[in-house]
């Protein structure tokens, strides 16, 4: 087990190296230098760059004239809120739909779900988001069009996570604000989770179907165990491995999706901030934003890798 953890950490180091080299090259393209380097050699400058990053000096934004890291941390919680919500939605719904489809293999429900998921999977997210706004916000009026919370609420940004900050008010006003924020969160989260949900549902279905054919499921059936128990206890645990792997890939799809989604729903997060930086050639912000987002993707995948080591006894306890 220790060996596989060390291997994962080694991969992490290599990814970080590649990543910082890329953002370093990116930062070199800036019209005005982002960091004051001592050396003329690009090689030495790279190490100085790393030094700056570790010290928390990620450069000064050329448009806002503020620290990039500070800007990032200010916008970050809104994005995290959206991503976590979307990911929970994608994983739970995707798993449920996949299980449902696999247990009714070849039936009309299976066919409908798989066709729908193919449509969901091929939908361009900007168009899908606007369709949802058109239907649910403008025509039906069920959800707000944009933003994180209505203007009538004035919430102190303690943690900058809206759902937590509203509840920190500890009164009726705070709870109303919480519901309002949740209401605002639904549509962007649905938009963002559609593609990963479709992929996870398809993966769950095929992985479960493969596992359900295996010999140990036959053994379980011969014991006279109920069908539900066979799915939840015997099959799902073994089918989870490829689902976890594919979920790790989804986080990078979500990261690029979040930029467009935030733009559509005027969500004050990283995506909107980064898009503005790109359109105004703010290299310091781009470099910092890319670095931070990528680190999150890598960290998420690392956590998933550890999770799959934990869930797989063959990796956890080699014979």
């Amino acid at each position: 087990m220790i060996a596989s953890i060390l291997k994962q950490l080694g991969t992490l180091l290599i990814s970080l190296l590649g990543l910082t080299v890329l953002t370093f090259i990116l930062s070199q393209q800036s019209d005005t230098p982002i960091h004051p380097y001592q050396s003329d050699s690009a090689f030495i400058q790279y190490f100085e760059y790393i030094q700056f990053l570790i010290n928390g000096d990620w450069g000064i934004s050329s448009i806002h004239k503020r620290s990039v890291l500070k800007d990032f941390l200010q916008h970050f919680p809104a994005t995290i809120e959206l991503i976590v919500f979307a990911m929970i939605l994608a994983v739970t719904t995707g798993l449920a739909l996949g299980i449902l489809a696999s247990t009714r293999r070849g039936g009309w429900l299976d066919n409908t779900l798989m066709t729908t998921s193919l449509v969901g999977y091929s939908m361009p997210i900007f168009w899908w988001g606007m369709l949802l706004v058109l239907l649910f916000s403008l025509t039906l009026g069920w959800t707000p069009v944009a933003g994180r919370i209505s203007f009538e609420y004035d919430i102190q940004p303690f943690t900058r996570f809206m759902l937590i900050d509203t509840l920190l008010h500890h009164n009726k006003y705070g709870f109303d604000a919480f519901l309002n924020a949740l209401h605002h969160l639904i549509l962007p989260a649905v938009t963002l989770s559609t593609i990963p949900m479709a992929i996870i549902a398809r993966m769950t279905r095929s992985s479960l179907l493969a596992v359900l054919k295996s010999e140990y499921i036959r053994t379980a059936r011969s014991k006279g165990i109920s069908k539900q128990r066979i799915i939840w206890v015997h099959a799902l645990r073994n089918a989870l491995q490829p689902i976890l792997t594919i979920s790790g890939v989804q986080i990078s799809i979500i990261m690029s999706g979040v930029i467009i989604t935030e733009y559509i729903f005027a969500w004050p997060g990283i995506g909107k901030w980064l898009l503005e930086a790109v359109s105004r050639r703010d290299f310091a912000s781009i470099q910092g934003g890319v670095l931070a987002l990528s680190i999150i993707v890598i960290a998420f995948n690392l956590v998933l890798d550890f999770l799959s080591i934990y869930l797989n006894p063959r990796l956890r306890r080699p014979s």
């Binding site: 036959r218 011969s222 206890v233 645990r237 006894p313």
Partner: peptide, 28 residues
């Protein structure tokens, strides 16, 4: 009861021997 040709793949790889045995006893 039935036993199969490949004992190792006939047992669930993610559950302990004890769990699988216990489950059978519990059901019967």
């Amino acid at each position: 009861s039935i036993i199969f040709q490949e004992p190792t793949s006939s047992l669930n790889p993610s559950l302990t021997i004890g769990y699988q045995l216990d489950e059978t006893i519990r059901f019967h």
